[in-house]
Design a protein around this nucleic acid. Structure first.
Lengths: 211, 211
DNA sequence: CAGTGAATGGAGCGATCGCTACAGAGACGC
DNA sequence: GCGTCTCTGTAGCGATCGCTCCATTCACTG
């Protein structure tokens, strides 16, 4: 199968190969479209190796989701540290640009996530639950970031608006990804600028209005 | 299997039963998660009946997509006729409300469409191609509608902006659906109002700016 | 009342599914 | 050199997959 002599004790490398292959396959074909046979074909490893590293298909895909998230975080901005830009509007533009670029450069996580998110069987796959968890974590990280950006106003109100903005933020990212993918003719950077300004204006409106 | 005597010559009814069942299944489990066995189980009809009405699984799902689109159109607004609201902002709000409500009331089409849109195998299913076609048609219908709403400005510019707005419109719908589905705590009507106003403001900006 | 044709019922084909059993290969400590 | 542990290779299990064959049923026509 492979010409090069495969040395042993290299489990970690094989595990990674399997995760990468599964990610590529699952991001293109979804949960049910991903088969162990496709993974073994892509990696050159036998099914027994796959099952040595992962308990079953369900766990394989759950681990793949987390793997893809880790990969995505390498490209995407971290929400913890702020860039130190004085103008809030500018900072938001910067964030959205980096996030949208991450989606374009390494789209596997977002693709796979959306596919899992849309799934709705009675027996929920672990990968889906894991995705929702990751999404919720991301959302609260974004919320904290927004609370810092919206420096003024009373804390309760600011926190509420920041929560809305975080949801809104994710919503925009989803729409952005699908829109750019499904409909030709978008100029992404230009679009993101406009959306960023709109988003910020929305936050200001929410901050000011009553209840 | 069925107690009631099933009269013959009722192919059309069976065909509908199959399409409805397939739609429910496919909207929850996606293309590969949909199996003929699940359809026969849900309808009480044998596989031979399914294959009498549809050439194969690929065609069954393609027909299901179009069926779901027809169903959706029963709930969703038609883009051809305008409601006759004087204020453009108001009219846009009305449209978006009706569209978003259609997505909530009868979400199968949108769900299935998004799932098919995300698919990306080398051998593209007919259902996916059919979805992209339907989406493109819808987009141009929305574009024409926008051209009428944006009454002023020179025609070329207006057409260009209307094209952008149509893409933007679909993008918002996608994000809206996923956002409401994935993240708890949205108040849909309120959100749609805000988005509608933002969208209209965006259109005015695009109309005014150069090139 | 025979003949026709739309549609169903049921059995089952070969292929692929997820997964397992088990022997073997090779890097280790002793 | 010898056992040990990690990981691979092969073969194949039972279940399900998409799909087909073909007899049967029944509303029709003549």
């Amino acid at each position: 199968m492979r010409k090069t002599a495969r040395r042993h004790q290299q489990g970690e490398e094989s595990r990674l190969r399997i995760l990468d292959a599964t990610l590529a396959i699952a991001a293109e074909r979804g949960y049910d479209g991903t088969s162990i046979a496709l993974v073994t074909e892509a990696t050159g490893l036998p099914p027994s190796s796959v099952y040595w590293h992962f308990r079953n298909k369900d766990e394989l895909l759950a681990e793949t989701l987390e793997h893809s998230y880790r990969r995505w975080r390498e490209t995407a901005p971290t929400w913890q540290d702020r860039v130190g830009i004085a103008d809030p509007a500018e900072e938001i533009r910067d964030r959205l640009h980096r996030a949208s670029r991450a989606i374009v450069v390494s789209p596997e996580f977002w693709r796979l996530g959306l596919m899992l998110g849309l799934l709705n069987r009675q027996q929920e796959p672990t990968a889906r639950r894991r995705y929702l968890q990751v999404r919720a974590d991301t959302r609260s990280a974004i919320q904290e970031w927004w609370e810092q950006v919206l420096a003024d106003g009373d804390p309760d109100r600011r926190s509420l608006v920041a929560g809305r903005m975080a949801r809104f933020h994710l919503m925009v990212m989803d729409g952005l990804y699908l829109g750019v993918r499904s409909d030709r003719g978008w100029r992404l950077d230009r679009l993101v600028d406009l959306i960023a300004d709109g988003v910020y204006a929305q936050a200001r409106t929410w901050l000011k209005e009553a209840a």
